[in-house]
């Protein structure tokens, strides 16, 4: 399903019946599991970073599996699984299928899980070249040729973007699933956040290249409000016009190489950014 970015309108909430049985198929005190694949743990950390709100979450859900927080493990099935990280090894591919079978609702969190992450840079080269350059014993490495998002392997009920995700958005998604409503996670541009906050556009006022016009909102306009251009951490927005923005970057004096590189970072594997970067090879 891949709510964000796949169908472009973020409308799907994987629930489908906000009413009906009324409980979203979830138990009275739903069991929450947090899973890690190829990733840096930063998105899971956002859940711990919820601090005060985390206590409220822990009251509403049973934290059944969350190794970053506790070694205690409760067996599945699980009502909600939060999945961090990309599918990067054959083992990952097997494990995500097992987790999907054990999860009523599966929500992917972060750029790795939703777009393949920074490690998807390898998709543009040859795996062999990288592992022989990095590892003393490349034969120990059992990795897939590409790093891919979870949604390429199993059905996903909701994709929460960001590198890392925003903790307020994470709480909103959990809150929405617990209350049987659609999450308020907009898919429009970063510019909307900047303008609502009164942040002066760094591209227009300073000539700083910024991916904001093609990037999904959600971070709370962190970089532009600190006088930096948007790095695209939240991936492509709905209907992104990357080619127009790239053409403008070129007119402002940016080289083809630099244009390629701005689209190749945490969300390099997201389709719109991947295609744009490839057109500047």
């Amino acid at each position: 399903m891949g709510a964000n970015g796949k169908n472009g309108n973020g409308r799907s909430n994987g629930n489908g019946n906000g009413h009906g049985n009324g409980k979203n198929g979830l138990s009275e005190r739903p069991k929450l599991a947090v899973w890690k694949f190829s990733s840096c743990d930063g998105c899971q950390l956002s859940l711990l970073d919820c601090e005060d709100e985390l206590l409220a979450v822990a009251e509403k859900v049973e934290i059944a599996y969350f190794l970053e927080a506790t070694r205690a493990q409760v067996k599945g099935p699980y009502d909600i699984s939060l999945v961090e990280g990309s599918i990067s090894t054959p083992e990952d591919g097997k494990r995500i299928r097992k987790i999907r079978r054990q999860s009523k609702v599966l929500i992917t969190i972060g750029a790795c899980a939703t777009a393949g992450g920074i490690q998807a840079l390898r998709n543009f080269g040859r795996l062999y070249d990288y592992i022989t350059a990095v590892y003393a014993r490349p034969d120990y490495i059992d990795a897939l040729a590409s790093s891919t998002p979870i949604s390429e392997h199993v059905p996903v009920d909701f994709e929460l973007r960001g590198c890392p995700i925003n903790k307020h958005q994470l709480l909103e998604v959990l809150n929405a699933f617990l209350n049987h409503r659609r999450p308020n996670i907009p898919t429009y541009s970063q510019c909307v956040e900047c303008k609502r906050h009164g942040t002066v556009c760094v591209m227009v006022a300073k000539g700083t290249p910024c991916l904001g016009p093609v990037t999904q909102a959600g971070c709370g306009n962190l970089c532009p409000s600190c006088d930096r251009g948007c790095y695209g951490c939240f991936g492509p927005k709905e209907t992104p016009n990357t080619s127009s923005l790239a053409t403008w970057f070129g007119w402002q004096g940016m080289s083809q190489r630099d244009i390629r590189h701005v689209f190749r970072s945490f969300n390099a594997g997201a389709e719109a950014f991947r295609r744009e970067s490839e057109s500047h090879e």
Binding site: E172, N175, R181, G212, T239, N241
Partner: peptide, 30 residues
């Protein structure tokens, strides 16, 4: 349309554009 980024900037800086949306939020306990 080929050049437009559909980023919304023009409407948000416009001194007369007045459209709004409403968003409902709930506390965790509902």
């Amino acid at each position: 349309g080929k050049r437009c980024l559909n980023c919304s900037n023009c409407t948000l800086v416009c001194p007369t554009c007045f459209c709004s949306t409403v968003e409902d939020r709930t506390s965790l306990d509902g």
